[in-house]
């Protein structure tokens, strides 16, 4: 029987490889993976080592353009931009990731329960969602920070909660469809319990949608977190969160544009990479789609 286990494991590996091949066929998504891996690495290194102290002021080197000593130039206080971007990556990417995680977990849980059990609970959750959806996501995030106050944890909460209603809608709608799938009926005929069906049959069938959606939302959340920083409602000033950096440097936008452009390019690249990655994941994670592509 150990032979059987081996064959079973080989079959599983083959399945994973298949997904990987489908993913790689999408060049843009594959490239995005490298871009994001580089950014993650940068954030990781930034926590331990930066070429200069990102907070050290050196007015003699102020507003320098790209050079060997300062590859990405210096800002108006002479702080090294590369060091600041490396330091800030941890904040921008980390906060966005935590916010998406929070929004996806909270929103999916509420959406699942709301869609599967229905009734009064569903009505209450949906009316609350209606109210929240009436506000644009960014406005909702701004409103939340003004209630919660400035600070890293509050940015996570604000950006996370701002996306919750969208997840609730998405997951609830899918749950409503999946609830009536014949295989859910078959599950009931086999004597499976409600929570079992919810987590074993319904959640896995919409999990890839949640993953893909969350990847797209990483891009959007990076923009929200940066916007909050830019407006001075996000991560407070000396910390070089990318949006905060742009907001801080806006006086120099016409005279020394690189001070604004450097963090801007990083924000755009990260947001774009997450969007492209989402496209690739969507194709790779749907097994039915994978078969279609392989045949094509």
């Amino acid at each position: 029987m150990s032979d059987l286990i081996k064959r079973v494991k080989a079959a599983k590996r083959e399945r994973t490889m298949q997904m990987w091949r489908t993913f790689r066929a999408n060049r843009a998504a594959y490239a995005s993976l490298y871009v994001l891996a580089a950014m993650a690495l940068m954030a990781l290194i930034g926590a331990f080592y930066t070429p200069y102290d990102p907070y050290r002021i050196d007015l003699s080197a102020a507003l320098g353009f790209f050079s060997l000593a300062h590859p990405l130039g210096t800002d108006w206080l002479g702080r090294d931009m590369l060091s600041r971007v490396m330091e800030g990556a941890r904040y921008t990417l980390g906060i966005s990731f935590a916010a998406v995680l929070l929004g996806a977990a909270l929103g999916s849980a509420l959406g699942l329960v709301s869609g599967y059990y229905g009734g009064l609970l569903d009505a209450i959750i949906q009316r609350a969602t209606d109210v929240l959806l009436a506000f644009p996501t960014i406005l909702l995030a701004i409103a939340l920070t003004s209630v919660l106050g400035v600070g890293i944890v509050n940015v996570v909460l604000a950006a996370g909660i701002a996306t919750v209603p969208i997840y609730i809608r998405l997951v609830r709608n899918l749950t409503l469809t999946l609830r009536n799938e014949p295989y859910v009926e078959a599950g009931r005929a086999m004597g499976l319990s409600g929570p079992y069906i919810l987590f074993r049959h319904i959640l896995p069938n919409l999990s890839y949608v949640i993953v893909v959606q969350s990847t797209y939302y990483m891009g959007i959340t990076i923009l929200i977190v940066s916007a909050l920083g830019f407006l001075g409602l996000g991560v407070p000033k000396p910390i070089p969160e990318w949006g905060t950096m742009i907001g801080d440097a806006r006086d120099y936008i016409f005279t020394y544009p690189h001070v604004v452009l450097v963090p801007g390019v990083f924000i755009s690249a990260a947001a774009l990479a997450f969007n492209l990655l989402g496209d690739g994941l969507r194709d790779a994670l749907d097994p039915r789609m994978a078969t279609l592509l392989r045949r094509a």
Binding site: E181, P182, Y183, A186, A189, G191, L192, P204, N205, P287
Partner: peptide, 21 residues
């Protein structure tokens, strides 16, 4: 009782299986 003493085989085998399991 369902699944142990009384079980059902449904009409359309294409839709009565979970596609992701």
């Amino acid at each position: 009782i369902r699944g142990r003493d009384i079980t059902v085989v449904f009409q359309d085998p294409n839709t009565y299986l979970n596609p992701l399991m």
